[in-house]
Design a protein around this nucleic acid. Structure first.
Lengths: 189, 189
DNA sequence: CCGTCTTGCCTAAAGGCTTTAGGTAATTCC
DNA sequence: GGAATTACCTAAAGCCTTTAGGCAAGACGG
């Protein structure tokens, strides 16, 4: 077969696209090879194994998501920042369900520490600068925001809120109102 | 081989146990057959296919979780109910990570409608009777609670909060305080 | 008590994904 | 121009899924 020019980057990107099309857990080395019109073993000089492919897609998605979030956060603060940040997550999951699922892949601690996950955590904390929270409440709030965003998007993606009133968009918007109110009025111990 | 007495129920239960031991997505028809000391094709007279097995495990876990939640909710109201209900989820996920993962399996709408998922939704709504919320805010709050519970448990399970201060238990408890405060003080539109 | 029917698990087999080992042709480099 | 490297290939083994068909033991009617 002719030279196709396989690289880890191209394989990762193709895997990410494939994830959005057929679902992250349907992404296999075979499927990616097929997409490049190449025999499966050819990928093994670029990838350690199947898990390696999945991990790379996850890191790619985390990076992409963090870039979007960072851009959305620039120049905003308070509720404005909270909403923009949250919307980045929800919109990304809507546009790229496969990549979003990839971003939720459990990474081993070392890989996680070197991933864009760290940026996500820092940005979430940055949002809280617009509110009057001190440690350890700030950390509790970081964890809660992460939970709500991930939880809502994940339930919405799995069809939890579809076909029932009120509209998911309205719930999302009202939940963000509620979170803003909560952060401005975080209960003392 | 001798008569083993395979039934769909026994296969489902074994699959649920296996899920907790090796992870829900490692649960295969092969693995369950192995556990019964039986050849793989023997299971196909009880199961339609691999997805059928997974779905049954999911329904089983949803049922079990709903039973526990119902028991915890009996005789409680207000914050007491909120906490007890939330703890059931978190504890179940901690004790049975594989089953919890199974309970999050995306079911097709028809299957979902006949599942214990409906009870979960009703119970969440029941908790809100202890707070002064009217529609559509009640629905928004139901969705938010579901998101936080699922999101938190899911992040905790994937190792998000381990090895970092403060303790995850403390965050959980403070987040429940915060949710209680929020529900008592839900912002008007 | 005996033959038949049914039930319950088995072997055979095909197709797909993963992964390793080793081959070949084209490109790169001295 | 020849040697080394690169990039993709074939071969093959192992595991999982799923369908088709077989056999033996227990259930059941005569």
């Amino acid at each position: 077969m002719a030279h196709v020019g396989l690289t880890v980057e191209r394989l990762t990107r193709a895997g990410a696209e494939l994830a959005d099309e057929i679902g992250f857990d349907q992404v296999t080395v075979s499927a990616v090879a097929r997409r490049f019109g190449v025999k499966v073993p050819s990928l093994y000089s670029h990838l350690k194994n199947s898990q390696d492919l999945r991990t790379r897609i996850a890191l790619y998605a985390l990076e992409e998501l963090a870039d979007r979030a960072a851009e959305a956060l620039a120049g905003r603060s308070g509720k404005d920042a909270l909403t923009a940040f949250a919307d980045v997550y929800r919109d990304y999951a809507g546009e790229h369900p496969g990549r979003y699922a990839a971003a939720r892949l459990r990474l081993d601690p070392e890989t996680a520490a070197g991933s864009a996950g760290v940026r996500h955590a820092r940005m979430t904390r940055a949002i809280l600068r617009g509110y009057d929270l001190t440690e350890p409440d700030q950390t509790h709030a970081v964890r809660m925001l992460g939970s709500v965003f991930h939880g809502y998007v994940s339930l919405e993606l799995s069809g939890g809120f579809s076909h029932s009133a009120p509209d998911s968009q309205e719930s999302w918007s009202r939940i963000l109102d509620a979170l803003d109110a909560l952060l401005r009025n975080w209960p003392a111990r």
